[in-house]
Simulated assay, not measured.
Amino acid sequence: MPLLKQVQALHARHVPHRFHKNGTDEAYLAHFRHGIEERSGFVLCASTAGQDVGYLFAVLDAAEEDAFCCAREEMVLDQICVDCNAHRQGVATALIEAFETRVSALGLARWRASHWVFNQASAALLLKAGARPGVMAVSKEMPNESADK
């Protein structure tokens, strides 16, 4: 869980209204178990000299055609983390390559990922892997008017 806690702390620091650091190991494991069992997900791990230095968690997004969208079946790269002491050593690239091998073996034609705007390292990694921007999401903090009354 140390790697997961690193990435969770990063997100909690940059997006505190959305992420916290209060998760338990049991809750984290339940999240992964749900993704693996209920969403045909998988976890890939990277090790160097017997030490875990990175992981990638992916889940399947599948939906039938509806009134607006075509049927889809694509893998979602949900989380990727490399230990801060193993950055710039090709770990993330190797994880993405293994992920793409798995996606291809599953017969899927596409994968997607999202990242928070603050996370320029993820943005650069995904672009380097050949992913291209698709959807732009925006949000706005509303003023707390009750504090003014």
Rank of each mutant, 00 (worst) to 15 (best):
V138L: 12
V59N: 11
V138E: 12
L29K: 06
L44Q: 06
I36H: 04
D83H: 12
A92Y: 05
Q6N: 03
V82T: 14
E37M: 07
A86D: 05
V103Q: 11
A86S: 14
K21E: 14
E100K: 15
R18K: 13
G90I: 05
W116D: 01
E38L: 04
A86Q: 09
L126Y: 12
A109P: 06
L3K: 04
M1K: 13
F57V: 01
L106Y: 10
C84N: 09
L3Q: 03
A9W: 06
A124V: 12
A27L: 14
F99Y: 03
V135E: 10
K128H: 15
Q79K: 06
S146F: 04
A105N: 04
R110C: 09
L125P: 03
C81E: 01
D78S: 13
F57N: 06
E73C: 05
Q8N: 11
V138G: 01
N144E: 13
P2K: 14
V7N: 07
V15M: 13
K149A: 03
Q8A: 12
D52V: 04
H115A: 03
E145Y: 07
G23P: 00
I96L: 09
V43N: 01
E38K: 15
F19Q: 09
A105E: 07
H11K: 03
S114W: 15
A12N: 08
V82G: 02
A121L: 01
M75R: 09
E73F: 04
D78G: 02
R112I: 07
Q120C: 03
A71H: 06
V76P: 02
Q89I: 01
D148N: 15
S104I: 05
A121Y: 00
L4P: 00
R102V: 11
E74F: 13
R13A: 15
Q89D: 05
L125G: 05
C81R: 00
A67I: 11
E38I: 03
A86K: 07
R88P: 07
L77Y: 04
L77V: 00
A9Q: 15
S104E: 12
S139W: 12
R39V: 02
